[in-house]
Design a protein around this nucleic acid. Structure first.
Length: 490
RNA sequence: GGGCCAUUAGCUCAGGUGGUAGAGCACCUGACUUUUAAUCAGGGUGUCGGAGGUUCGAAUCCUCCAUGGCUCACCA
C-alpha cells in the first residue's frame, strides 16, 4: 500500500467500505452504458407531456434528504437538475438500502415516473436505480461551492461539477468559436491547419518555446502565430482562409495572458485592412448577438455596445486627443524624443519616432479606449509584416481593436513586396543580434513565397480568449481557459 | 522576474497582544414515508502549506522555501 493510500482520510475510507459493500451485494459500483431517454431540463420544460410517464435519466447525486423509509435526492446532468423520490414500499428493502447508502457525488441511472410533489416540485418517482459510478471523494460544500481559485484551476473537473456558472462560461466559449466558424464558412472562407511546430517562429513579436525533434535531431519552435503559413496559402491561391489557432508565447502570465492562447486568424486575397475592419465589426457583433442575445454587454458597470459601425481613429489623432502631442508635425527622431521627454517618459537615446509613437499610445491612449474602437495607422517600425500606407510610407495600413482598455484584434493590409519584406526582416534580425529576443527571425522561405507573387490581401487576428472574457464578463483569462497553465505542485 | 497579500478539517471560514485548535456544511449512529439549506438527538474526523529559529511554550513572532491571487514589467 502506498503512503498516500495509508494517509487516506476517514471520509474516503468510509466510501471505500461502501464500495466493497456494493461489490459484496453483487452490484458493480462502476456500471455500464445507460441509455437515457431524457434529461433533467427536458423534464422540467415538458412536465405536462411527461407527467405519469416512465423516463430513464442519468446523472450525479448532488443532495440527499432522508425521511426514514422515504427520501429525496437531487440529480444533476448537463442540462440541469431534477429531484428524485425514493420510497421503500415501492423499491423494496434491498433497493431502498442502496438509496440509504448513497453518497453525494455518486452517478446513477434512474428509471421512474414523472410527477409533482405536494410542494410543487417536479420529480421522478424512482422505480429502479443502477450504479454507474461510485464517487470516492467528497464534493465541496453545497452552499459556497468551490471558492479556492487554485483548486478551481487545478481541479477544473470539481469546479465544473459544483459551480454551474463555470459550465455556462465554457459552453459560451464553444458557441463563440462555432459562430465565428459559421460566419466565415458562410462567406466562403476555408478553414485550414498549419504547423504548430515551426523551424522559424514568425508572424508576431514574441519569445517562443523551444522543443526538439529526436529523429530529425532538430530544434523546433512552438508557433507564436500561424500568420506566415497562412499567407503562404494566399500565395498558393486559396484566397480566403482562416485558422482557429492555439499559439504559444514564452512570456509572463497575468489576468490577460496565458502561455498558450487561442486566436482566430483570417486572410482574404484582394482585400485590405478596411475590408478587415468591416469583417471584424460585423463578425464580432454577430457573434456577441447570437451568443448573448444582445449586442450590448454590461461589464464592471460599463455598458459595452458592439453594434456596428465602431469608432475609427488614427493612432496619431488618438495621441493628439489624449496626450496632446501632434506627432504629424514632428518629423525627426530627435523632435519625437523631445516630445516624449516633455510627457515625462523614459526615452532611450536610440528610440525612433515610430517606436515613441507606439509608446506614447500605450501609455496615454489605451486606457481611454472603452467602447469598441479601431485604431489605425501604426508606424512601420512596429509593423514588420504590414503594407505601407501609399500617402505616408512611414505608416502602415494596419489597425488594432481596443475594448475595455484591452487589445482584442490586430489586422493589416499584408505586405506583399518581397524586397521590402526582406529589408524589414533584416532590420528585425539586427534587433535580434542586439539582444531583442522578441524580434523576428529571417524567414527565407517566406520571402521565396512572396517572390512568386502574393495578391494584395487583408489579414486579421482576433484574441478568442479575450473576446470570451468580454462576452462572459470574466475578469481573468484563466476563467475562460479550462486548464490554465500553472506551476506543477508537489 | 519585482512588490503586496494569502495558505487552519473533504469544502466555506473563525481563531486581539504567544498558553497547546473551533463553527457551518459534508460524514458517522439513531428517529422520521412528499422533503427541498428538511428537522431532531448524539459523534470532531486536523502534519494549522513545508523546513529551520526565538521561547518554558508557536496556528500566532522571525528567516528561508513552496503554491496561489492581485499588481508592475513584458505581451495578445
Amino acid at each position: 500500500m502506498s503512503e498516500q493510500e495509508q494517509n487516506i482520510n476517514e471520509l474516503i475510507k468510509i466510501r471505500r467500505e461502501k464500495l466493497e459493500e456494493l461489490r459484496t451485494a453483487g452490484i458493480d459500483p462502476f456500471g455500464q452504458r445507460f441509455d437515457r431517454d431524457t434529461t433533467a431540463q427536458a423534464i422540467q420544460d415538458n412536465f405536462n407531456g411527461l407527467e405519469g410517464h416512465t423516463v430513464k435519466i442519468a446523472g450525479r447525486i448532488m443532495a440527499k434528504r432522508r425521511h426514514g423509509k422515504a427520501g429525496f435526492a437531487n440529480l444533476q446532468d448537463l442540462s440541469g437538475n431534477i429531484q428524485l423520490y425514493f420510497r421503500q414500499d415501492d423499491l423494496g428493502e434491498q433497493k431502498y438500502d442502496l438509496f440509504r447508502k448513497l453518497d453525494i457525488g455518486d452517478i446513477l441511472g434512474i428509471t421512474g415516473e414523472v410527477f409533482r410533489t405536494q410542494k410543487g416540485e417536479i420529480s421522478i418517482h424512482v422505480r429502479d436505480l443502477v450504479y454507474l459510478s461510485k464517487s470516492l471523494h467528497p464534493l465541496p460544500e453545497k452552499w459556497h461551492g468551490l471558492k479556492d481559485v487554485e483548486l478551481r484551476y487545478r481541479q477544473r473537473y470539481v469546479d465544473l461539477i459544483v459551480n454551474p456558472e463555470v459550465k455556462e462560461v465554457f459552453i459560451k466559449r464553444s458557441r463563440v468559436i462555432k459562430e465565428m466558424r459559421n460566419y466565415l464558412d458562410e462567406r466562403g472562407f476555408l478553414e485550414v491547419e498549419t504547423p504548430m511546430m515551426q523551424p522559424i517562429a514568425g508572424g508576431a513579436v514574441a519569445r517562443p518555446f523551444i522543443t526538439h525533434h529526436n529523429a530529425l535531431d532538430m530544434d523546433l519552435y512552438l508557433r507564436i502565430a500561424p500568420e506566415l503559413y497562412l499567407k503562404r496559402l494566399i500565395v498558393g491561391g486559396l484566397e480566403k482562409v482562416y485558422e482557429v489557432n492555439r499559439s504559444f508565447r514564452n512570456e509572463g502570465i497575468s489576468t490577460r495572458h496565458n502561455p498558450e492562447f487561442t486566436m482566430m486568424e483570417v486572410y482574404q486575397a484582394y482585400a485590405d485592412y478596411e475590408v478587415m475592419m468591416e469583417l471584424t465589426e460585423n463578425m464580432i457583433a454577430t457573434v456577441v448577438e447570437r451568443v448573448n442575445g444582445s449586442m450590448v454587454v454590461e461589464i464592471e458597470g460599463q455598458s459595452i455596445d458592439f453594434t456596428p459601425p465602431w469608432q475609427r481613429i488614427s493612432m496619431l489623432e488618438a495621441i493628439e486627443k489624449y496626450a496632446g502631442v501632434n506627432f504629424a508635425a514632428l518629423k525627426t527622431d530627435e523632435e519625437a524624443r523631445a516630445a516624449a521627454c516633455r510627457l515625462n517618459m523614459e526615452v532611450d537615446d536610440g528610440a525612433t519616432r515610430g517606436n515613441l509613437i507606439n509608446e506614447v499610445f500605450e501609455e496615454f491612449v489605451e486606457q481611454k479606449l472603452i467602447q469598441p474602437t479601431f485604431v489605425y495607422g501604426h508606424p512601420v517600425e512596429i509593423s514588420p509584416l504590414a503594407k505601407r500606407n501609399t500617402a505616408n510610407p512611414q505608416f502602415t495600413d494596419r489597425f488594432e481593436v481596443f475594448i475595455m482598455q484591452r487589445e482584442l484584434a490586430n489586422a493589416f493590409s499584408e505586405l506583399n513586396d518581397p524586397i521590402d519584406q526582406k529589408e524589414r526582416f533584416q532590420k528585425q534580425v539586427e534587433k535580434r543580434a542586439q539582444g531583442d529576443g522578441e524580434a523576428h527571425m529571417m524567414d527565407e522561405d517566406y520571402i521565396n513565397a512572396l517572390e512568386y507573387g502574393m495578391p494584395p490581401a487583408g489579414g486579421l487576428g482576433i484574441g478568442i480568449d479575450r473576446l470570451v472574457m468580454l462576452i462572459t464578463t470574466s475578469p481573468s483569462i484563466r476563467d475562460v481557459i479550462l486548464f490554465p497553465t500553472l506551476r506543477i505542485k508537489e
